[in-house]
């Protein structure tokens, strides 16, 4: 049991680290948001599952925290992204890529 819990913890921490690496390596804000949100959300959920396996008595509160992260994290990221777009921050793109979103606006 402890081994499974530890595996969840390591996988969760690894995904969180990948998210942080993405935060450093990605070329612009929007891509950084993407890397940060996705990886950290699943990473946190894996960590919570790991802790729940170590301390089964805490499951109810861990469930509430997990649902909270699952709802608020993507919502917060979308809110930031929308604010950036409205503030006029242009997404980075390779020169060859056309941007259908810009064309008919």
């Amino acid at each position: 049991m402890r081994l499974i819990a530890d595996l969840f913890l390591v996988v969760g921490a690894a995904f969180t680290l990948f998210g942080a690496i993405g935060l450093i390596r990605m070329p612009d804000v929007y891509n950084r948001i993407q890397a940060g949100t996705k990886a950290v959300t699943l990473g946190s959920l894996c960590l919570l599952i790991g802790i729940a396996l170590l301390y089964p008595a805490w499951w109810s509160k861990l469930l509430v925290i997990g649902v909270l992260i699952l709802i608020t994290n993507p919502l917060g990221s979308s809110t930031i992204a929308r604010a950036l777009l409205k503030a006029g921050v242009k997404p980075w793109s390779k020169a060859s890529v056309s941007q259908p979103g810009e064309a008919d606006r």
Partner: peptide, 10 residues
């Protein structure tokens, strides 16, 4: 190589 081809789509 960081394979990216980002764009805003609808």
């Amino acid at each position: 190589s960081l394979p990216l081809q980002p764009a805003v789509v609808e």
